[in-house]
Nucleic acid binder design. Structure first.
Lengths: 223, 223
DNA sequence: TTTCTGCAAACTGTTAACGGTTTTCCGTTA
DNA sequence: TAACGGAAAACCGTTAACAGTTTGCAGAAA
């Protein structure tokens, strides 16, 4: 039994289901909801002081993000990732980010490139000393990349993987599976290609980078 | 004002929302619901003889598929595709099917290859004489490709694009934007690479094929 | 005529209750 | 002791009603 927290910015025009999804997502990320654990709609509804309707919406959204699995007429359960899942997420993510890098290289959007470099700087500052900050800007780099591609459907697809990507990045850093400096160099290669307008190289570099995180994690996360 | 039809196989264990989604999807495909038209939950609910709950589920699903757009507190509207949308769909579809072809080439799943060739045969039979049958097996070819890749998330992503892909394939055929024989040859190139286990070539061929449909359609559909 | 203002109708977001299926638990039997 | 069966509780899918916001329209003002 755990306590879910309703986020601060309530009573705005945002559907209640969004807050519910945020709360449950945080609980899964934080680890207070464990894999295979059952999520009962009515229990969550009463913990969050709302009715089952918005909670159902939230669970649908989290299922879309891959954090939970809904079994019709049975219930909703927190996902458990096996090696195949990690492989799927990293390969899917890789082609999405690869295509995004290609689009961005073609667009020559200077403001976006600046943002990417801000992320690189923040990552350099954080280094190995502040892994969480490093990971935060690592994720922000990738989000900026896909968002600035101007490809809305691509961004939506990526956004649905975001939380699982975050888990990957976080664990890679906390588990010291790869040096911070090496990670940053990968990102720099991508930015260089984008700045040069080299679409093929941008795609290759982004895809290779994202895909390479998979094998590193397979042993670590499924341990 | 149009009439929506509840599909035959009712009163089974399938959520009502699925039937509602099927009915609305058909109406959009058939053209009785036009782009920008507003979809009112209560109106659909009474036409389908059910309550707003399942209808809301259905609209969420159709929004995921890109057939409608939900504006919070405003309502749900049938999507209107512009050139950017067509470009987005064909490029996204292309990297998905490309990765699927790569996975399938590696798996060497003979049963799947057989299914692909059955589709090719059916397409050859239909030729230019039966465009709808040709398009049906064209779609089935691509669905089989992605499904047999064994990459579940890839298939889910593809499935969410399915209806729009179907629209593309159907219009390409009905508008005679490309010869049936040429289309079949494209598919054969993909199958050859998969049978040879040439992952790189399978990916290249599948991606190129899917992406090439975009520019052909841009003029036609947004006319 | 055109623009503004306020009211009424309509619609979405949310809630609470119902019905039927699934799960759990306990007593019985082998 | 272990396996089975059935009743009771729990829970999901669905429905109907409520509340607040948005939209559309009618009449007033310019």
């Amino acid at each position: 039994m755990i306590t879910l927290h309703l986020h601060k910015s309530d009573l705005v025009g945002v559907p209640l289901g969004h807050h519910a999804a945020d709360s449950i997502r945080d609980a899964i990320l934080q680890g207070s909801l464990r894999p295979d654990e059952r999520l009962v709609e009515s229990a969550i509804a009463s913990q969050l002081n709302l009715s089952r309707g918005p909670v159902r919406d939230a669970l649908r959204q989290l299922a879309l993000e891959g954090l939970v699995v809904i079994v019709p007429r049975r219930g909703t359960f927190v996902s458990r990732l096996d090696r195949a899942d990690i492989r799927e997420i990293s390969t899917l993510r890789a082609v999405i980010e690869g295509l995004a890098a290609r689009f961005l290289a073609v667009r020559r959007d200077q403001a976006a490139v600046d943002q990417l470099e801000e992320c690189l700087n923040a990552m350099a500052e954080a280094g190995d000393a502040d892994p969480v900050r490093f990971a935060t800007f690592d994720l922000k780099f990738h989000e900026t990349l896909v968002r600035a591609s101007g490809h809305r459907r691509l961004y939506h697809s990526w956004a649905n993987l975001r939380t699982q990507i975050w888990m990957f990045i976080r664990e890679t850093r906390l588990g010291n599976l790869r040096s911070a400096e090496g990670t940053r160099e990968f990102h720099q290669t991508i930015v260089r290609a984008i700045r040069a307008g080299d679409a093929a190289e941008a795609e290759r570099a982004a895809r290779h980078h994202s895909e390479s995180t998979g094998p590193e994690l397979e042993d670590y996360l499924t341990r």
